[in-house]
Design a protein around this nucleic acid. Structure first.
Lengths: 175, 175
DNA sequence: GTGCCCATGTAATCTGTTACATGATTAG
DNA sequence: CTAATCATGTAACAGATTACATGGGCAC
């Protein structure tokens, strides 16, 4: 999915997110970065090696990350944020027009088309969506209630799911 | 962004949306389809010719669209939905797991990092975001109040913006 | 040692982006 | 007629995906 506009000197969403991981985790290996994407339930990225490793190299080549080989048997690399990288990250975070854009919402695109379905089909799929959304909400609420709330993105994701549920309820009376 | 997961026999988000346009508009030319993406305020896609024209060819090659050359001087093509395409579109719309996924939300990704900013920076960018979000809300409300509400995606987008505003208000007291 | 997971990549492919090219139509 | 715009593409490129390859460390 789209979502991927090429750089006009700017960072990709993935690159910005990668900088954020390195910033909050401190110097870390590619695998560590990658796992953040694999584990985080942001289904938007696969966290595939073919995306993360090249992104790290790009960022290092641009001077935003500093790379240092370790001396252990793996000879892996530890990336840390350079001052330039920290500045770039702040620019990325404070890019208000990018932040307030509507993004890529698979729900919104399908919502328009629900009316095209037969009532029976629509009811069936709406029920299934409600089921999945409620499950996600429960999962997120469980995570957020834990002592370490982790990144607050979960709050926003929860709010998003609830918005969708409210919309389904209001429009089709399914709750 | 994005977002772009390759096909495991499935349709891309763009392809699904393209089928939706052809379905709701009836037989139409590539340009007609493209303009829907250019005009619609879904900032997620550029609606570039390099995306739309190949997508239409792909869908036609897969038998989901029927292509018919017109006899006028443009010799353009009119695409219409084949029965197979209609079925594929329904599958796409009713793919509940895909629909309820969290998508690619640039706001959510930046929200986590706002805490890393200085209070002054954070206040400044939060204010700017609020300004942009309110402007989008006003614009959407204007559109939605018109006689022809057009696709309901606008309702969801409006709800998304309001969710973001509420989050900023709650978290940073900026409204 | 053998098998399995951890960690680090690479290769081929796919899709969307920008930027350009080109012919038809319309406004002046 | 000329210029702008409509409409239809193509070309080069970038970034992400899957799938594969490979070597180290650990359990048994």
């Amino acid at each position: 999915m789209p979502q991927r506009k090429p750089r006009n000197g700017r960072l990709t969403e993935l690159e910005g997110a990668v900088l954020g991981v390195v910033r909050s985790e401190g110097p870390c290996t590619p695998y560590r970065v990658r796992r953040e994407f694999l584990v985080s339930r942001s289904s938007m990225w696969s966290g595939s090696a073919g995306a993360v490793y090249p992104a790290l190299r790009r960022l290092a080549a641009a001077g935003l990350l500093r790379a240092k080989r370790t001396e252990d048997s793996r000879k892996s690399i530890r990336y840390s944020l350079s001052p330039k990288g920290a500045a770039a990250f702040v620019s990325w975070v404070t890019d208000a027009p990018a932040a307030t854009g509507s993004g890529l919402d698979p729900f919104r695109y399908r919502a328009d088309a629900l009316d095209a379905l037969s009532p029976a089909q629509r009811k069936k799929v709406a029920r299934e969506m409600v089921r999945l959304l409620k499950r996600s909400c429960a999962e997120l609420e469980r995570l957020l209630s834990k002592p370490h709330p982790e990144p607050c993105g979960g709050e926003l994701e929860l709010a998003l799911h609830k918005t969708r549920l409210a919309w389904l309820e209001k429009r089709y009376g399914i709750g």
